[in-house]
Design a binder for these strands. Structure first.
Length: 614
DNA sequence: TGCGCTTTA
């Protein structure tokens, strides 16, 4: 969408937390306006929880994830004659799957037009990907080769940006970034500054340093207003970066990668780029994701610099030498090559692609990662000995909008009599840690608020407790949430996710008895926690660990030392065997998150093959 | 013992 049009609608798009979803709705609104119709008539949009289309709809804007869901019921996407894939150069997981799928569909539906919008750098790759197929299939009937595709260039409205490098490398880019900000402030013409750093901690301390030093500026000199920007902030906190700075004040936005592509801020004239970003990587041997700061790609550096040239000519200060720039990789490794592929493999199989290894990926993921994913799906019972999706379990798991392990838990729930509770837990876990609000400098208050909801057995039951309290006390009362340090918007989202998951289960013919979950059924409550913990074990047996006397955990094989994440109840409690939702390596420690106590023999009971005693 | 880059169904 970076082809000059964006400025028209970014005004409404930029304020929201979910840029992809927002882009679909605002673009639809804009195009409907141009076509003088109402949204939902000739022009509509479709995003999770919201389908604003009708029989009259001719142009539909949707997220790529939504289109993949549609392909589950309409494998040839036969209702569309033209499909345009936007922002393809970002190479998100779902974009890559979609491109492979579209290429496959075009073999059966050559009349389908595919338009791919991408930064120029990668346009050739996309053309080669699709054209390669035309040439190949045109081998016996040459005529189909007549339309192999074209590259059309649309020049964006961009002002020139001067790039400046360091003459010698810096030891400490945070310190250097602060210095650069003040150099710009005292020596350059007016205009706001955008600083790219890697994470929350770095950003908060930089903001702190800038405001301390800014206080020492001459009282009559222009002021500096440093503002943090990262996804962990609430949307209210994010809003500040879009507000115009007060009179005689220059804004300095200190941001993660979120400002590189997802969020656009007008008025930026100077960019300071540290040259690093935190990226996810996945180790198929250990199944552990890492999250570490790595050098960015040239494409990324170009994108960052471009943020300075949106309103007038700008400058980009790179906190590295031109020599180090030359050594950067051209592009960032696509997500599909650095992710846990279990959800991808499951999705492809549900789309009828059984031989995932032979699927035509734009860039294939490492074979090891595919094998690892298949092993997990097999142990969950989602695929059979022939790696085919099982019926109904595997098929249903693929249809559910949750990861395979949680999908298995949801589908096991009826036999443990805890469907309602598991629905709430699944919804809460999918919020990915945004249940509690972050209060810097107020850790103790957050801690004690959290303790009020704590349940002895662990984080999952604590989530259930929070969810039940929210729907009875806090749903209509944002203040109740603030008082308890709970994220109101996140919890509302949990309610939507839960009702969507419930609809899926009901479509599978699973009855959801909501009366069991209400607090007046005290009699059931004593047995219920154990059933829930057993049920969780049926999906998360591969994520089991045992606490050591020193409070750390060891994996079942004993090879790895794990630490309870400080946000977990188990951070300062005793336990024996546990299962956990997530495992992540940051810095030099491996953390586990969302932890619940279990009994060792449950592992053998629910995963006899996985934990076979020889 | 002390904390996660982003996005979506």
């Amino acid at each position: 969408m970076d082809c000059g049009w964006q400025s028209h609608w970014s005004d409404s798009a930029r304020f929201k937390l979910q840029p992809r979803r927002v882009a679909a709705t605002t673009v639809a609104t804009r195009v409907a306006e141009e076509m003088r119709c109402k949204v939902g008539e000739e022009v509509g949009y479709s995003i999770r929880f919201e389908d604003v289309t009708s029989a009259a709809t001719r142009i539909k804007f949707l997220t790529d994830g939504m289109l993949l869901r549609e392909a589950l019921v309409d494998p040839l996407l036969s209702r569309y004659s033209v499909i345009m894939v936007d922002e393809a150069h970002e190479r998100s997981l779902s974009t890559d799957i979609l491109l492979g799928l579209l290429k496959k569909i075009r073999r059966k539906r050559p009349e389908l037009r595919v338009v791919i919008s991408s930064a120029t750098l990668q346009a050739e790759d996309f053309l080669r990907f699709f054209a390669g197929d035309e040439v190949h299939s045109g081998g016996d009937g040459k005529e189909s080769g007549s339309d192999v595709g074209r590259i059309i260039s649309l020049e964006g409205r961009m002002y020139p940006v001067d790039i400046l490098y360091l003459e010698s490398p810096t030891e400490d880019y945070v310190e250097r970034a602060v210095k650069t900000v003040f150099d710009i402030h005292t020596q350059e013409a007016e205009g706001d500054i955008l600083v790219f750093l890697t994470g929350r901690e770095e950003i908060e301390s930089t903001v702190q340093m800038i405001s301390e030093r800014a206080a020492m500026l001459h009282p009559k000199a222009p002021a500096l207003l440093p503002l943090p920007l990262y996804s962990g902030l609430t949307s209210e906190q994010q809003l500040y970066v879009f507000e115009p700075a007060p009179e005689n004040t220059r804004k300095v936005i200190v941001s993660t990668n979120i400002a590189e592509a997802s969020v656009t801020i007008d008025g930026i004239v100077y960019v300071v780029d540290c040259g690093f970003a935190k990226l996810r990587a996945y180790n198929p041997h250990t199944g552990i994701e890492t999250l570490t700061a790595v050098p960015i790609s040239k494409a990324s550096a170009t994108q960052r610099a471009g943020r300075a040239g949106r309103t007038k000519p700008g400058k980009c200060f790179r906190l590295y030498t031109q020599q180090s720039y030359e050594m950067l990789p051209e592009t960032t490794v696509p997500e599909i090559q650095r992710s846990n592929l279990a959800p991808v493999v499951m999705q492809l199989k549900a789309l009828g692609i059984d031989n995932v290894a032979r699927f035509d990926f734009l860039t294939p993921p490492p074979a090891e990662q595919v094998i690892r994913a298949l092993e997990l799906l097999y142990s969950l019972g989602a695929v059979d000995d022939y790696a085919k999706l099982t019926k109904p379990l595997g098929l249903r798991m693929a249809e559910l909008a949750v990861e395979p392990m949680m999908g298995k838990v949801l589908l096991s729930a009826p036999s443990f009599g805890c469907v309602s509770e598991i629905l709430s837990i699944a919804a809460m876990v999918s919020l990915q840690g945004s249940v509690w609000v972050q209060h810097e400098g107020d850790r103790k208050a957050t801690e004690s608020a959290r303790r009020k909801f704590a349940v002895e057995e662990g984080d999952h039951l604590t989530y259930l407790n929070v969810y039940q309290a929210f729907v009875t006390k806090g749903k209509k009362d944002p203040k109740w949430c603030r008082d308890h340090y709970l994220n109101y918007r996140s919890l509302l989202r949990a309610v939507s996710i839960r009702s969507q998951l419930k609809r899926y289960l009901e479509r599978f013919g699973i009855q959801v008895d909501e009366s069991l979950s209400s607090s007046h059924r005290q009699a059931d409550l004593s047995k219920q926690p154990e059933q829930i913990r057993r049920c969780l074990t049926t999906g998360y047996f591969a994520h089991a660990a045992r606490m050591q006397p020193d409070g750390t955990f060891k994996t079942v094989s004993g090879g790895l030392t794990l630490h309870a994440h400080p946000s977990s109840l188990m951070f300062n409690r005793k336990a024996d065997w546990v299962i956990f939702h997530e495992i992540l390596e940051t810095g030099d420690k491996i953390f586990i998150r969302d932890i619940t106590k279990i009994e060792k023999n449950w592992l053998l009971e629910y995963a006899p093959d996985y934990y076979r005693v020889s």
